[in-house]
């Protein structure tokens, strides 16, 4: 009896030691995981602060109202931010209607079958195609086959190709979350399919669609490779013609055909210079880009969070 008790005690001690060890492993792993995540957050912060600190000397209004120049001190990003803005206008007006329409079609109209599958597989694959491939497509198709040249229009179309899958996917997800009874109620009072879609489904999906649009636009702002590939210039000291003027009909579209540069290309150009003074300009441009994209992404995340909290079917 005594011997067996001793043995159990020993066994128990072994088991306790084992449990202790395993619990310790748990804590060690949780510590490592937490540490990695904190490091990632700190990395993001350091990157951001590095840009702001490096670019601080250039952070003034002149930087936004000056053209790029051979002299780094006087150089600014006027042509770049105007170019980015104009390109994004084109991207928005092409990608949003098409993406939302495609999303609606896939969720509300398409019947299950090979045709819907074909579109679905293509959308999934397009999201994984490297952005530079879209640049090559645009170079071959828009620039040369369609003869659009290296213009604001070409760049806008190119970026809209990149944004399209993002808008389609977010539209679909937003629509899918809407319960059937919303549609049934509308059908019951005699609405047609399109009326149901436009007046009910799309209204409820609007938040999710908007999230996708913002994320897509944020991506389009920072996208560099495809715009370089279509042959965008890296040094532009003029502005495209203004879209609004004082002669009737007050708006013109000649800016669509103008040469341009965009913010990330301007940044890339300044990084590639050997002189340190240009790197300061690059950092300042980077800070502008990152503030824009972080702000837009943050807005999208907040929006999504609000929707998830607010809507309870």
């Amino acid at each position: 009896m005594a011997i067996s008790n001793k043995k159990t005690d020993k066994d128990l001690n072994v088991i306790r030691a084992l449990i202790k060890k395993h619990k310790k492993n748990d804590q060690i792993f949780a510590g490592i995981g937490f540490f990695i995540i904190i490091s990632l957050a700190i990395t993001l912060l350091v990157l951001f602060l590095d840009l702001v600190i490096d670019g601080y000397p250039k952070m003034n209004l002149d930087f936004f109202s000056n053209f790029p120049s051979r002299k780094p001190e006087g150089a600014g990003i006027l042509s770049a931010w105007v170019g980015s803005a104009l390109v994004l206008v084109v991207t928005f007006f092409v990608a949003v209607p098409m993406g939302v329409a495609a999303g609606i079609y896939l969720e509300e109209y398409a019947k299950k079958g090979w045709f819907a599958d074909l579109i679905e597989i293509n959308v999934a694959n397009l999201a994984g195609v490297p952005s530079i491939i879209y640049g090559l497509l645009a170079l071959g198709l828009f620039v040369y086959e369609f003869g659009l040249g290296t213009s604001v229009l070409t760049a806008g179309l190119t970026l809209s190709l990149l944004m399209l899958p993002i808008v389609i996917v977010s539209t679909r997800e937003a629509i899918r979350a809407i319960p059937v009874h919303i549609r049934e109620a509308a059908f019951a009072v005699g609405a047609t399919k399109w009326q149901v879609t436009l007046h009910h489904v799309l209204q409820y999906a609007m938040g999710g669609v908007l999230t996708g649009i913002i994320i897509g636009m944020a991506r389009a702002i920072g996208e560099t490779a495809p715009v370089i590939t279509i042959g965008a210039l890296t040094f532009i000291a003029f502005l495209p013609p203004s879209p609004v003027n004082d002669v009737a009909p007050f708006i013109n579209f000649s800016w669509l055909e103008a040469g341009f540069t965009v913010l990330p290309i301007q940044m890339f150009n300044w990084i590639s210079r050997p002189e340190h003074a240009f790197h300061i300009n690059a950092a300042a441009t980077g800070a502008v880009i990152i503030v824009l994209t972080l702000f837009m992404n943050g807005l999208a995340i907040k929006l999504r969070y609000n929707i998830r909290k607010k809507i309870k079917w």
């Binding site: 995540i37 990632l40 990157l47 940044m267 890339f268 790197h279 992404n297 943050g298």
Partner: peptide, 24 residues
């Protein structure tokens, strides 16, 4: 808290990452 941070990291344009690779 963490998931939004990861999403923000995804949103950083690659040209900015290039800047860090070369100059940091």
């Amino acid at each position: 808290t963490v998931k939004p941070i990861l999403e923000l990291l995804v949103g950083v344009p690659t040209v900015v990452f290039g800047y860090f690779a070369l100059l940091l």
